[in-house]
């Protein structure tokens, strides 16, 4: 009897959970429909200037057309490639710099003021210089995507290295471990959660770097389409590009979240 009523309570609890989930989903969906609907109506009745703000139906039309003739695919590929590479290089570079800083106290003391300046510097302001130095192409854009996250990653990871409980190192040193062995056995594994948490931030940053890079280089990619649409007054194109960016940025964020969960599970 007792067992049974326990089970009933659990079932009721689960039912309540799934009900709440449904309500939330319904709200989320309604907001989306309402927003799109209002936008469409406002545009049709000229409450807003359809030339400037376009309308959902026009954006969808344009997207379908550009997707079927394939002309937008290359731009999407271009931007995705740059963002992923920028993210990887920025994150890996940050971890490597943090390791170098950790490996020599003197090096980290020497670098300290430079890191502070480079961190405070708005990285996108370096865009023109990067383009002059590396040429107006892929390399510059990827550099933009990477440089925007590399310094902050190295600072965050370096401080995480320093926060590892010194007693783990003590244990290793009592076995006569070298500094490198201490790093490999204690410092790095203890810091993995902190490193993983920089991933999500860096994905967002890489998008910023890449889109600004494409604004400046103006050859290809979704950032280029935005600038181009703006210049020829085709705001449906601008909006369509924004929609694509939103979709792919969200997908990438989710993927990184999945990778993060997997890494946390397999590193502990």
């Amino acid at each position: 009897m007792k067992q049974k009523s326990d089970h009933h309570l659990f079932v009721a609890y689960k039912r309540q959970l799934s009900h709440e989930k449904k309500v939330v989903l319904l709200w989320q969906f309604s907001i989306l429909i309402l927003f799109i609907g209002l936008w469409e109506i406002a545009s049709r009745f000229y409450w807003i200037d359809p030339l400037l703000f376009s309308s959902p139906s026009r954006i969808i039309q344009l997207l379908i057309q550009k997707l079927t003739d394939g002309s937008i695919i290359t731009h999407v590929e271009f931007t995705l490639f740059e963002t992923i590479l920028g993210f990887i290089i920025g994150t890996a570079g940050g971890i490597i710099i943090a390791t170098l800083l950790w490996s020599s106290r003197r090096f980290s003391n020497v670098m300290d003021p430079y890191l502070v300046i480079m961190n405070a510097m708005p990285k996108v302001a370096l865009g023109p210089i990067i383009i002059v130095a590396l040429g107006p192409g892929l390399v510059s854009i990827i550099t933009m995507g990477a440089i925007i996250s590399v310094i902050i990653t190295s600072l965050v990871v370096y401080s995480a290295f320093n926060e590892v409980d010194p007693n783990y190192e003590k244990v290793l040193k009592s076995f006569g471990a070298s500094r490198w062995q201490c790093f490999k056995e204690a410092i790095f594994p203890a810091t993995i959660p902190a490193i993983i948490s920089t991933f999500k931030v860096n994905v967002g940053l890489s998008w910023v770097g890449v889109i600004v890079g494409e604004f400046l280089v103006s050859k290809q990619g979704l950032g280029y389409l935005i600038i181009y649409g703006f210049q020829v007054f085709d705001f449906s194109l601008v909006m369509a590009s924004l929609v694509l960016i939103a979709i792919f940025a969200a997908i990438m964020y989710k993927v990184v979240e999945k990778i993060e969960a997997w890494l946390i599970k397999h590193s502990t």
Binding site: Y168, V171, F175, G176, E185, A186, A190, I192
Partner: peptide
Amino acid sequence: DYLFPWKTILNNVLLGPKIY
């Protein structure tokens, strides 16, 4: 104890031999 939380008990025990 300062056992390393990311290692199994056995691997914690084998830490010294690994370093030596």
